[in-house]
Amino acid sequence: MAGTVVERDAAPRGRRWWIEIGWRHVVGIVTIVACVLPLVYVLSASLNPGGTLTGSNQLFRTIDLANYRELFTGDYPSWFANSIIICTVTSISTVLMGGAAAYAFSRFRFRGRQGGLTALLIVQMFPQMLAFVAIFLVLLSIGEVFPALGLNSRMGLIAVYLGGALGVNTFLMYGFFNTVPRELDEAAKIDGASHAQIFWTIILRLVAPILAVVGLLSFIGTFGEFLVAKVVLQRSEEFTLAVGLYYWAADERTARWGLFAAGAVLAAIPVVLLFLMLQKYIVSGLTAGSVKG
């Protein structure tokens, strides 16, 4: 499973290579083909200004970058910037808040701990049937007191997203925190460290993989969210990518599929790049020395 340093040196060859490694490439290639195939339609549509999304299986009949050029004449660049800002702030805050909560649940014993944990998970399962009315109302009243957090504000939207910061992600972190041996805390405590020092300097460092995972999940989740965002943001220049793209496709009759597809292709790039960047933290693993204490 998790490879070790020892093995890396002795790269197997021949038949053993196939048994141990080669088949993994086959799995990878097959899966990637399955992943990419539907997206080829999107790419093809993005290069065809007048075409449909799935009306024809004859792909790439025209190659024309007009859609991509058009993207940059409108509000698309500012949507892009908005999305990056909103998602970055949201995901960093989610990681910190969720991480802190997970630390509390993992390391302290207090009344209501078990109940609180369960409640956090279950609250997130509430159907959001009326969320659009409720969120509108709550932002309306908050906006009267703190205009910066009301409707039409990116800050307000971030605040709404942070309402979900404690939830499933807290659990993922909680489980991971529990795998960090308590002896580490104890040792640090004996050395005179406070709980905050332990959290910031020891635990957070050791759980870096899961922080990266949660950050990524939160980023992607926020990046694709449009139901709440379209209630909060009403001016075109304030839209996030998801809202802007949704509007392009909202009316199926007049949907500008080419433009929409081009927008979606470009919008996928930051997500993939972020994953590429975070990978090394996600898979870095715990350094043997620090875990075993």
Binding site: A104, F126, V138, L166
Partner: peptide, 19 residues
Amino acid sequence: PGKYLIPGLLFLLVYQLFV
């Protein structure tokens, strides 16, 4: 524990529980 929970809880309270 409250020191670690309160920031997230306040947001949860306002935005999720209100819904």
